[in-house]
Design a protein around this nucleic acid. Structure first.
Length: 778
DNA sequence: ATTGTTAGAAACCATCCCAT
DNA sequence: ATGGGATGGTTTCTAACAAT
């Protein structure tokens, strides 16, 4: 490689600080160098990495057979993922930002880029892999495992008695596994006397005799004379040392040997999820962080979906690593992709920011995300516009790194849907009828925009799910997870391509491989007789999966769809409008001079006003969710009015509870009035309205009610900790339409309905009430 | 005094290996 | 072969703190 030159002064010497490259001459930070180094770092592994990491060390005479350290393996993977995500539409900038994050992260781990002057060896964390220790410090793996920290007295005894290398007995706190096993057996053999003995010595003046303490402090690796490579001390990171020191103090206080073992086990276990412990999940979090900094319109949900669809090969990340490299089994552990989840990524992301001292970051473009969700859900354009302007009027201080942008954005959509349609299980269907009637009339006039019909839309969404999941395994899994699948072709095809990784080269056995092969054989056999119904269809990657896939199917494979589903999917709801009030105070003149009179009505939401549940305790029993009380409130005023009133009433923030009480009092009167009227008019009208497209049915002066649902907003506020409890609560309390919408929206985002509803509550309480941000609907 | 938030502990899950 | 241990991860509970 040719040495990069500084743009400013042409110097060729660079030093690193905190993962950034600076020209040695003029001290300017260099982006170019960074990039080149990145390429080298990533591409010519052997040379660049080791040079950067431990340039002048004798150990650099590695041969390929030595294997790679875990960092190098993750380096390949990270590089591979970054490339893939760029292919999927992210800007090239992601690569550059990735370098910065990666180097900073490694710097934090004290692995690389720690100093420009001295070439330090990578330090090891608590959960280091024996292979890393071997490569970097020449410590034999066996040796590490043999001399384990967890091992209690049994070990001490033997080492002490063996005498000679009592002070270089080692340790790795790390090989807990083997050691604990030994500890268990040692326990039996060992006995109380032994324990008394050590106790007395350790309580005594000198700890130096206690091997475990020594290990904690000196962390020396054994020198095996027979070794050609001179073994060295293993150096641990600051955090690791601090942890060990603390553990030492705490261990002093613990009397029983059994408890000591337990303590060691527990405290070490905690370290496994530490951000310092590099795992696949953290690589994905780094990738997401890079995307945030690049303002890419790619979010956790997209990454997870792409992973499951195979566009991001996290599931088979082994392919990123050169064929001839043998991966130690311990490293395989941390390559397990199965446990990467949305909430976990969110937490990891926050931890990562904390670890890297990231406090400032660009705010994602939530309006465009909202637009995207609206496209995916095929919501009307004017609906999307309202959402976008609403979001852009939300105060920025409500957003920080902990914000779950995706859920938050979707929460706006849920709330607005609820304001318009009330979603109490009744109003939305009444509105659908009204809309259909109006549409029927308008269809004669060409230019008029059609109204959004809730129930048709719901039908469309359901149909789309069903159709796509016939051909797309991932969709099938996410949508009909609980239903038994009956398309083994689809499953096998997906499995072959995206899930199965051949571990046999790297892993001992086994059992998993045999098992999966057996299942695959069986499945293949099942289908052998049948003729193949669906050839595998390759779907394009997309940020709006269901929308894109359904369009893809319609255009590319129309013959595979039934007429009816084609018809339903042909609907275009984005061109409809939710502007019901447009028709308010208007009458629609029909061709034959008959007239539909639209009468505004009070909202219908009171039908779900929990009259049945006025006493919170009843609810608790009813929904069998225990613990805290349920607070349910009902709104019947528009938010605009709320704002004015509350501003008038008090300059300071109004107590939320009082506020709610006032409102609900006001509400009850109005509602009841409206209720009766509505039922009367509506039923009468409904009977007369045939499904057929017929004007004659609409008599002169017939009237249709228009429900101004936004004047009548309800919500339930309940703090429920666990997902399961929340599901029970939701199933019992929420109207079915609302629950359905919640489920759909949360699926689009990729979170649980509880996560989404938490954000909905946050928006309502914090944004709307406390900050008094009114939304003007329509 | 009561409530809401929060970090951290504990419980739980799935996977794999090894010693028995 | 089999159960127990280690591991990385997720979810739920809890106790301490903060805010009313």
């Amino acid at each position: 490689m040719t040495n990069p030159k500084c743009n400013i002064c042409g110097g060729e010497d660079f030093f690193t600080d905190s993962g950034f490259f600076y020209c040695a001459e003029c001290q300017t930070q260099s982006q170019d160098v960074r990039e080149e180094v990145f390429e080298d770092y990533f591409l010519s592994q052997k040379g660049a990495v080791r040079t950067l990491k431990k340039q002048s060390h004798q150990l650099s005479s590695f041969s390929g057979s030595e294997g790679l350290t875990s960092w190098e393996i993750f380096n390949y993977i990270f590089k591979g993922l970054v490339d893939e995500v760029i292919n999927l539409g992210a800007s090239y900038q992601v690569k550059i930002v990735s370098i910065q994050l990666w180097t900073t992260y490694l710097y934090n781990l004290e692995v690389a880029f720690t100093s420009s002057k001295i070439n330090r060896k990578p330090k090891l964390g608590l959960n280091f892999k024996p292979k890393d220790a071997e490569i970097v410090y020449g410590v034999k793996r066996k040796r590490i495992i043999k001399n384990s920290l967890i091992k209690p007295n049994a070990k001490k005894k033997t080492t002490l008695s063996s005498g000679s290398d009592s002070d270089c007995t080692t340790t790795s706190i790390l090989s807990k596994r083997a050691s604990a096993r030994k500890a268990a057996s040692a326990k039996k053999a060992l006995v109380a006397a032994e324990y008394e003995k050590t106790l007395s010595t350790s309580e005594g003046e000198s700890y130096s005799q206690d091997t475990s303490y020594q290990t904690l402090e000196s962390l020396v690796t054994p020198s095996e004379r027979s070794d050609s490579v001179k073994s060295q001390r293993i150096k641990l990171t600051k955090q690791a040392k601090a942890f060990l020191l603390e553990a030492r103090e705490n261990l002093k206080k613990i009397k029983k040997e059994k408890n000591k073992i337990e303590y060691r086990r527990k405290t070490l276990r905690k370290q496994s999820t530490n951000i310092d412990n590099l795992t696949l999940a953290k690589i994905v979090a780094l990738l997401r962080l890079a995307l945030i900094f690049c303002k890419a319109n790619i979010y956790i949900g997209d990454i997870l979906r792409w992973i499951s669809e195979g566009h991001l090969s996290v599931n088979k990340c082994i392919h990123f690593i050169p064929k001839d490299v043998k991966i130690p089994e311990e490293t395989y552990r941390v390559l397990d992709p199965n446990s990467i989840t949305h909430s976990g990524q969110q937490i990891t992301l926050m931890n990562l920011c904390a670890a890297l001292d990231i406090v400032d970051f660009p705010i994602p473009d939530m309006p465009s995300l909202a637009k995207r969700y609206c496209v995916e859900l095929q919501l009307p354009d004017d609906f999307a516009n309202i959402i976008q302007s609403w979001i852009s009027h939300t105060p920025k201080q409500l957003i920080n790194i902990e914000t779950k942008f995706e859920s938050r954005t979707m929460a706006y959509i849920v709330i607005l849907m609820k304001m318009i349609f009330s979603l109490d299980g009744i109003s939305e269907y009444k509105l659908s009828e009204l809309a259909e009637s109006i549409n029927r009339c308008n269809s004669l006039k060409k230019d008029d925009q059609h109204l959004f019909v809730w129930k048709n839309w719901a039908q469309y969404i359901e149909c789309r799910k069903a159709v796509v999941s016939r051909f797309h395994q991932v969709t099938r899994q996410s949508v009909y997870k609980d239903l038994p699948g009956h398309n083994s072709d689809l499953f096998l095809e997906h499995y072959e391509k995206n899930i199965f990784t051949d571990y046999s080269e790297h892993m001992k056995l086994g059992s998993k491989e045999e098992w999966t092969n057996a299942v695959k054989r069986t499945l293949s056999k099942l289908d052998a007789d049948k003729k193949i119904i669906n050839e595998a269809i390759q779907f394009p990657h997309s940020l709006t999966p269901l929308f894109t896939y359904s369009k893809f199917l319609i255009t590319e494979h129309p013959t595979k769809l039934s007429d009816q589903s084609r018809k339903i999917l042909a609907n275009d709801f984005t061109k409809t409008t939710v502007n019901f009030t447009h028709y308010l105070n208007n009458t629609i003149a029909l061709n034959d001079n008959s007239i539909i009179d639209i009468q505004p009505q009070a909202g219908m939401a009171n039908t779900f006003n929990l009259e049945n549940f006025t006493d919170p305790k009843e609810i608790i029993e009813y929904i069998t969710v225990n613990r805290k009380s349920v607070r349910v409130q009902l709104f019947t005023e528009s938010f605009q009015n709320l704002e004015k009133e509350s501003l008038k009433a008090d300059d300071e923030e109004l107590n939320l509870n009082e506020f709610l009480d006032i409102i609900s009092d006001d509400s009850s009167d109005e509602e009841h009035e409206g209720d009766d009227d509505i039922d009367g008019t509506l039923l009468g009208d409904q009977e007369d309205t045939p499904l057929v497209h017929s004007l004659s049915s609409i008599k002169e002066k017939s009237s249709l009610p228009l429900y101004e649902t936004r004047h009548c907003y309800w919500f339930c506020h309940k703090k429920i900790e666990s997902n399961e409890d929340f599901n029970i609560f939701a199933a019992n309390v929420f109207p079915s339409s609302f629950l359905w919408l919640l489920k759909e929206c949360s699926r689009v985002v990729g979170v649980t309905i509880k996560d989404l509803y938490d954000e909905v509550m946050f928006l309502i309480i914090i944004c709307l009430l406390r900050h008094q941000i009114a939304i003007k609907i329509i």
